[in-house]
Each structure stands twice: as structure tokens, then as C-alpha cells.
Simulated scan of single mutants.
Amino acid sequence: MNVDLFDFELPTDRIALRPASPRDSARLLVLDGAETRDAIIRDLAQQLRPGDCLVFNDTRVIPAQLEGTRGEARIGATLHKREGPRRWRAFIRNAKRLRDGDAIDFGPNAVAIASDRADDGSFALDFQGDEPVELLLERCGRMPLPPYIASKRPTDERDAEDYQTMFAAEPGAVAAPTAALHFTPELMASLEAAGIGHTTLTLHVGAGTFLPVKAEDTEDHKMHAEWGRITPEVADRLNAVRAAGNRIVAVGTTSLRLLESAANADRVIEPFEGDTAIFITPGYRFKGVDGLVTNFHLPRSTLFMLVSALMGLDRMQAAYAHAIETGYRFYSYGDSSLLLPAR
């Protein structure tokens, strides 16, 4: 499909620079079949049915942005996928000053050797020494805010908390599963009281999620692989939800993409552990989910393509026009939507 089909005018002031406070006060646009409703995320239980099951991503964002030097040259690195105990694949700023075998000094006792430059310009970084890389990043790294936020303000101490979900448990992501940022213990209690269940999976979100689609046709866009896991216990529970006639609702496109990667042609979710590079565009037949909670995405992005596949392109263009006109806030720290396609 032509990527221009997924374009729309988004005023820059609609991109949120801070999350709603409290988190569950964010607005919620509900697309329920052909019906459209304006709501608040703390009232999510009223928009779902008893027996529905929400699926959260329990990945934890690591401070994956590093600033260093190679000789006199300043080098920036954004880690995006672990390739070994001490090796990470990284996008590099000022990559023209870097060659295979060069050492980058990221700070006290934080040196990495660059190698294996890929076609997308990324390098493998092998961190030297025996200190756990996680401790090195806590000391030298910073939270990797999306470029649409980071270009407008610096990362600060608030982001260390704001950019983690309440489910964050498994370190490894370099971007937050932002749909879950709206959830609070109070909201979860209201969902439980309404008979709405939840479970978790793990998908370590990579920096490739921020990359623009530069191709003119979706067929020519390549997704970066991300590692994920669905345990047998979680797969069994979700299949039982479906068997009882209830719905699986992914919280975030990361949860949705992993569920779709794990679902077979009979709509059975199988245990999964490994990489996925699934790219969902209109025409895709969904097998793993019956609905989605997600934030508002940017024009021409793979994520707007995904929600258009779920609800229909015309439906999403109209919904986004309504969201822009009525002041919804977009992107990682923005408002939320609940997408429930007609069955």
C-alpha cells in the first residue's frame, strides 16, 4: 500500500511532552464497532465486559541512550537489541566518525568496541570489563525518550518514573509500552471489581519503533526484530478466555504484535520465545486479539498502519480527525483509545 494513504495533518502542539497527572485522568476515545464515544481512561471498566482479559507488556525500560567519545569525536548511541551478555546492537549518532574496531568511551569504566556495521547504519557494541552492563547503563545512560519529545525538551529525573509502567519487571526495553502508562493500582482495582482480568507477556521494545517509514510502499519497509516471550501458562489462560466466549484485549501495540506472532491459523495462542518482526497493515487477518488499548500515533507510522488494519483506514482517519479537533493529546505521553472492531 502507498504510505501516503496513512498521512494526516497533526499540529505539533498535540504531541504531549508530559503525561497526564494523575495517570488515569487521561482521555479515552472509544471506537466500539461503528460507535464512537469520548471517555476517561479511569472509566475503562465501563467500556469492557465481565470476562474480558487485558494483556500487558511487563518489559522495563533501561537507560539505553549513551554519550561518548572516540578520540576527539563525540559519539551518541541508542541501544536497541541485546545480542549477547555484553553485546548490544545500537543506532549511532555521528556514525561517519566510527569504524569497526574503534573503542568508544562512555564514561568511567564504560568502554565499548564497535563492530559489525549493518546496512541500516547500526553497530554492534561489545562492552568491556566484567561489570554487569545493566549497572553500567544505570550509571552512564539516560532514558531514551522518543525523538518527538526529546527534540523539544531534555530528559530529566521525572522521566525515570514517568516513562515506566506499573507492570515494568523485565529489563530490556529501550522504549516504553506506553499504552500501559495510564494504568494505576486504583484503575486495576476497578477493573478487577468489574470482573475484567489481566495477564502479562514480555516484549523488549526496540528503538526501531521510532524509525520513520521512508519507503513509498509498505511492502518495502523492513521492521526491526524484537525479542518476546509468552509462557505456556499465559497462553493457556488466554485460550481459556476465548473458549469461554470472552475477549482478549491487548494493552499496547507491543502486546498485540507478540500475541499475533504467537497465534496460529485456528486463533489459538501458542507459547512463544524468540524474535518477531511482524508488520501489520490493512488486509491482515487478526488471530490473537479482539481489541486494543493504545495511544494516538504519528502520521505515516507503522503503528497508525496497525490500528488502521484493526479498525479500517477510513474509520481511523475519521477518528483521528475527531481527536485532533477535540484536543486529544498524541504519542507516548498522550491520551488513549480503546479499539473494539465489530465481530
Rank of each mutant, 00 (worst) to 15 (best):
N57V: 02
Q128D: 13
Y331S: 09
R153F: 11
D38G: 08
R18W: 13
G195E: 08
A77G: 00
D220H: 14
A114K: 09
T254G: 06
W88Y: 15
A225M: 13
S25P: 00
E83G: 09
A34L: 08
Y328K: 09
A34T: 13
R97T: 04
L256M: 15
N295L: 02
A179T: 07
P22D: 04
L98H: 07
G141T: 00
M1A: 14
L187G: 10
A265M: 08
R300Y: 07
S336C: 13
I269K: 09
P85I: 03
G252E: 05
R343M: 11
G274R: 07
G51W: 15
G33D: 02
P132T: 04
E134S: 15
E186I: 10
A262F: 00
F330Y: 03
I269R: 09
F91K: 04
D159H: 05
T294Y: 08
I280Q: 08
A90G: 01
F286H: 15
S25H: 07
P144A: 10
A277K: 15
E131N: 09
A318T: 12
R70I: 10
E270K: 15
D156G: 15
G312Y: 09
I269T: 05
A179S: 07
T155S: 14
A309P: 14
E134Y: 05
L28W: 14
N94T: 05
R27T: 06
